[in-house]
Design a protein around this nucleic acid. Sequence first.
DNA 1: AATGAATGAGGATTCATTCAT
DNA 2: GATGAATGAATCCTCATTCAT
Lengths: 208, 208, 208, 208
Amino acid sequence: MSAKPPSTRSDAVRNRKLLLDVAARTFAERGVEVSIGEIAQRAGVGKGTVFRHFPTKEDLLAAIMLDLLDELIGAATGLLADDDPVRALRAFMTAGVEAFVRDRAFCDVIGRPSLQSQEVRDAIHRLCEVAEGLTARAREQGAVRPDVTGTDVALMLSGIQHTAAPLLDADPQAWRRYLELTFDGMTAVTGRPLPHPPGRLTLEENPS
Amino acid sequence: MSAKPPSTRSDAVRNRKLLLDVAARTFAERGVEVSIGEIAQRAGVGKGTVFRHFPTKEDLLAAIMLDLLDELIGAATGLLADDDPVRALRAFMTAGVEAFVRDRAFCDVIGRPSLQSQEVRDAIHRLCEVAEGLTARAREQGAVRPDVTGTDVALMLSGIQHTAAPLLDADPQAWRRYLELTFDGMTAVTGRPLPHPPGRLTLEENPS
Amino acid sequence: MSAKPPSTRSDAVRNRKLLLDVAARTFAERGVEVSIGEIAQRAGVGKGTVFRHFPTKEDLLAAIMLDLLDELIGAATGLLADDDPVRALRAFMTAGVEAFVRDRAFCDVIGRPSLQSQEVRDAIHRLCEVAEGLTARAREQGAVRPDVTGTDVALMLSGIQHTAAPLLDADPQAWRRYLELTFDGMTAVTGRPLPHPPGRLTLEENPS
Amino acid sequence: MSAKPPSTRSDAVRNRKLLLDVAARTFAERGVEVSIGEIAQRAGVGKGTVFRHFPTKEDLLAAIMLDLLDELIGAATGLLADDDPVRALRAFMTAGVEAFVRDRAFCDVIGRPSLQSQEVRDAIHRLCEVAEGLTARAREQGAVRPDVTGTDVALMLSGIQHTAAPLLDADPQAWRRYLELTFDGMTAVTGRPLPHPPGRLTLEENPS
DNA sequence: AATGAATGAGGATTCATTCAT
DNA sequence: GATGAATGAATCCTCATTCAT
């Protein structure tokens, strides 16, 4: 009852698609702060249309984030078929960091649980699971330390982006340096286990 | 001459201190978005009082950020005297990540150049320099890879915080895991240099 | 492209008109200092509505001043067709002084260049030009002294209002006395030229 | 009981004088809008000191306006002794217009009755009386038209300033042109009386 | 008396959201 | 369904005035 199914009228479908595209691009460039007004303008539709398709700004944002997450999950799932686990894991992390680098809103949302709808939290959880699939294969083969989890890997994508963030204006590829460094940390053979148990993301609304 | 020095009157000094404390705490908890009105309310003073001490919100934020940065720089400088370079570097990074973990506004400011005053940029630059001092000693002794710079280290502090961010509500120490992983990446002996040249932070205003 | 054209939707048109009316009346009565909030209240709309129609207070003021100036320019242009140049000039000055007398904001704007947008400056310039047209005809026929310009005439409209200002509450027609006196000064045959060259209004923003 | 006599303590006397000077200069340059804070700063005293000497901003303004008016009244009174009535009248008007040209706040106050205290209104009344003295002498000698009054003359001072106002930045002497024109209007022999009875300034508070 | 710290009402402006057309 | 007009809460900031030091 809360999630009214998207209309199937052809113009509405088209508009919904258009809005998602434009909003995605706009949020990506400028973060979650962009106003609905600007998105509507860029899309060439009225603000009312945005709100018809997405009852609140949060809903619109969530839809876009879900798309992004699904894409990433899809890519990761595909990589499970790669017969070189390390290459697959690296490809996944590369794609993941790139997604963050490209999208300021994605960074905002992942970094601020208060911006996450239940659906987004669920998708993040699924992402962690595929990541775990990829990680497990590399782990089993001894290519990454035994105590690195899929959640670790997923979380580090955002961390790598943020490490590089202050450099990205001047050098859009700066993240590659930190991805490599992180990768080396994951694969390092230290003999010492990581000093803190791995995390699990909270699936429920945080009542803070 | 344009920036009048803080008053030395005892009541004003007390209030200024109170304001900095309350504002620092508030910014730390909720990020740069908190309104001056709320800070005033929490401090039990009128809005006008905040503006008397800090002519703009930006000034207040900058003062707090400078304090934080100076503290960190001071700690790092002290660690230069430690005779174990690796221990010193690790201690510095620990302190740095803790600073980010404790303070959402610090994360906001470091991650968004548009929020940085020239003074803040300068302080960040100084921080990178001390970080380089600490890193160089560890590097010279072969404890960290030869191509890791102080700026790398400083940048990674923020990255580590962001990696752990989604876990911190449930587990405030989660960052320790990622600090260790990062540290291992820095110290890993791979034989391969990092794939992208190290960055330099821009010192001037970015005219974007 | 930056200044979106006023909406043509009937309710918006009505509201825009209402807003202009109310704002014009309010500005007229109380000068440029009235707050947007008060105008909105008097118009029975929300503050946001005012800002939707006029993005800044300055824009609203400019729109009203332009209307006023255009009206005056239109009247003056019409008077160019009058076959009695002196009667026409007097009619123009009468209309002009009346415009000032009726409108405190008009006085404020004309008297304070910092309140003038480029469009307003341009309109004032056009007003001076029509005034010159009217003046020239009277001058040619020897009815006004040879060295009185259209700009002189336009400027004196405001002067006459200010002369009478302190009397207007008690006697709303008091300006007629000073208009006559000024007119007599303009038409006086003294044989002596005016002691200072005529002025030209600056068309560009004053960088003071 | 409402007008506490100025203190006679030497430092207080000195401060009062200093404040009047600085405030007069500041008001003159920038009009009645200047903040008390700026005046205090320019005078090198605390805001509290300003309010000790002048309980409200209005009081300070009134004191300055009174000084200005008294000076003008004094000069006019002196000119009553000049044996050339026309020269004297012209000298008075010159001094008067200059006073307005020099002082934006004077213009503001004269033009806006709501800014006038009872004392200021009284002084304006006295000014009109001396002006009448000067005018009468010129009138008797047939040098100005028979129906021009001292109040007319006094009022026109402000009008002349406002006529020239838009030119004054570019040409600080522009008012001379309009003073002459006005003077010629006053002295014109037209045979026609002015079309509206002379005004009298209201002495009481206007309950608008 | 002098100071300048504190106050809070008031002002312009933005923006998510609702609703009449 | 689409539109964009209306709304009003929220934000930063200014300034006359009061009052503790």
